[in-house]
Every structure is written in C-alpha cells, then in structure tokens.
Simulated scan of single mutants.
Amino acid sequence: MTQQEHSRRVVVVTGASGGIGRATAVAFARRGDAVALLARGETGLAAAADDVRAAGGTPLVVPTDVSDAEAVEAAADRVERELGPIDVWCNIAFSTVFAPFTDITPQEYARATQVTYLGFVHGTMAALRRMRPRNRGAILQAGSALGRRGIPLQSAYCGAKHAIKGFTESVLTELRHEGSDVHISQLYFPGVNTPQFEWVLNKLPKIPQPVAPVYQPELMGRAMVHASEHPRRRAWWIGIPTVYTILGAELWPQFMDRYLAGSGYQGQMSGTDRPADAPVNLWEPADGAGGRDFGAEGRYSDRAWTRDPQIWASRHHGALAATGLVGLAGLASLWARR
C-alpha cells in the first residue's frame, strides 16, 4: 500500500460545483482522497467529478440543497454507505444578494440566510452525528473577512458569515467541554475570483466584483486541505487583506465605517453593465441540467493573486515565532556583552 493510499480520507465538500468548493474538492483529490460532491447544479457537479477523477481522487456526486436539513442528512448517509466513514466535512456552499439592504425582499433575505448560514448548521449537524460517536473527524467552515467586518451592498452575506462565526465558536467550546477529539475550525478568506459574481442575485447596475486584491480559488482550496491536516487550530486568517480587515474592524471600527461608506460601493462594481439575462442561483442552480459549467474561476483571473506571503507565514507561525525568539535572544546576548 502506498503512503497516499494509506492516508486516503473521505471528505465531504458542499458547494462543490463551482468556486472555492470546486477548487477545494480538486485539492483534496490531489492527495488521493475520496470526495463527496454536494451541490444543486447537475452540470457543475458532473464537471467537478471529472476534475476530481483527473486529479487522482474518487468522486461521489450527491445532488443536495444544503438549506434542507433532511436532504443533508440523507446525503451524509449515502456518503458513508458508498465511501466509508466521513473524516473531513467542508461547509462552503452559499448564495447571496448584491444590493442595498432596502432593496432586498424578506423572501430573498430568508433564502440567502437559509443557504449560507443554515446550510453550515445543517452540514455541521450531519457531520457531528457521525464523528462524535467515533471521537474523530474535522469540520471546516469556509468563512470570510466579511464575517468579521460588514460592508455595504452585502448585508445578507455579512450577516450569515457573522452568524457562522458565533455558532461555530459555541460548538467548539461544547466539543472541548466533552474532551472530544472532533475538531471544528474557521477559515477567513479574502476576496476570491469565483463565478459567484456572475450568478448571485444582483440588483446593482454593474456586474459586482470582489474587493481587491483578489485571489484565485485554488489558493483557498489548498488552504482548506492544510487546515484539515492541522485540525486543532481554531481559526485561520487567509491573505493580507483578511488580516488588515479584521484588525481594522477590531482596532478602529469608526475609520472602517467612514472608509467603506466612501469607497465600498464603487469598489464592488466592475465597469461592465449587468446583463438583462444574467443567471441567478438564489432559488435554482445556475448550472442546472444542460446548463453552463462555471468552473472554479470567475471573470477576474487576469488580476488574481496566486500566492501571498501571509498565507505561508500563517502556516509556519510557530517556526517564525521560534526564529523571532532566537533573534531576540541573540540581540540580548550582544547587548549584554557591550
């Protein structure tokens, strides 16, 4: 048996048909894992399965609307029947609305919240029902810097991501109270070049864009794999803009209010007019049967970052701290000899 075969895991990825979910599924496949692909869009799921297979993994397509708790539970049952015990569960699926709060209907707000927030709750419930009796497993929550700082035009998304932070921290403390060896972690991502900007419900005059700098989704997929291999860490800040967004929100929220009020509208709108026939995935998948496969990357690949020194530093913070202590000790020794 090869090392890769020995370390093969069963991984569930929600939102696997496109964007960060698609990139995460492929990243786990590259290490030889069996990957269950949960999403609504049949076209995207089929293409994601091909990508997983080509990357060296074993795909299992499970069409699922994560807003439906019973459907998520049934999906988890099927995964364990066909692939085996779930080792890693990645909650990534979401849907949202780009619009000022006053332009969003109660029905649209409820639907975005059901998918983006309750979808994570349902996935966490299904994972814990199976992992807690075995006393092993990892749950990864794909969060956002916007889960620590709200911005204009994204109240539905920011509200859901803030809610995910709160409930995840509650679950984490309960698992620690039990002394459980099941771990739950949050990853806070920056703006990512995904197809979401083409398929979310958009009420703006222009096609929305991620707040710069924008990152390629493959980088986030690799971060998810790394976090799964280091599950005891409770949170990961991914990317330089995530760091300054979170720190700015904590240290000087009034400045962030003024800055975002002035720049947050135009900064999130591209120069391209919104098409009258733009796809919308809030109620139905944009990549339904016979539809378009959107893939992992969006329309901003020409300016997306593929590396970031902060991500490397986040992974090696222990070594960096040790190096810093050695350096300080050396300086202290030199000073003492003066």
Rank of each mutant, 00 (worst) to 15 (best):
M131A: 10
A75I: 12
F98C: 03
V97F: 12
R129V: 12
K161V: 06
L140T: 05
A76W: 00
D77H: 05
A145I: 09
T113Y: 03
A160V: 07
D103F: 05
R136L: 00
K161L: 10
V88S: 06
P85M: 14
G147D: 02
R149S: 08
A145P: 02
Q154C: 07
G123S: 14
C90G: 14
E80D: 08
E108I: 04
G147L: 03
R130D: 02
E82D: 14
V88H: 06
I86Y: 12
P106M: 05
A145D: 03
Q114F: 07
E73S: 14
V88Y: 10
E108T: 06
Q107S: 13
A75G: 13
M125D: 15
A99T: 00
S95P: 08
I151C: 04
R78M: 07
M131Y: 09
E73G: 13
I92D: 15
Y109P: 08
T116V: 09
F120S: 11
L140H: 03
T113E: 09
Y117G: 06
I104F: 09
V88F: 10
K161R: 12
F101I: 11
A138E: 08
V88M: 12
R78K: 13
N91D: 14
T124G: 13
D87Y: 14
K161N: 08
C158F: 01
M125Q: 15
T116Y: 01
V115D: 01
T113H: 10
H122E: 13
C90A: 15
A76K: 03
M131S: 10
E108W: 01
L118P: 01
Q154V: 03
R129E: 15
T124W: 05
F98L: 09
G119C: 11
A138S: 07
T116A: 12
V79N: 00
R129A: 15
N91Y: 08
A110C: 04
E80I: 00
A112N: 02
A99F: 05
I86A: 04
A160E: 10
F120D: 04
I92N: 15
G123E: 12
V72E: 00
E108H: 01
M131G: 08
T116F: 05
F94P: 06
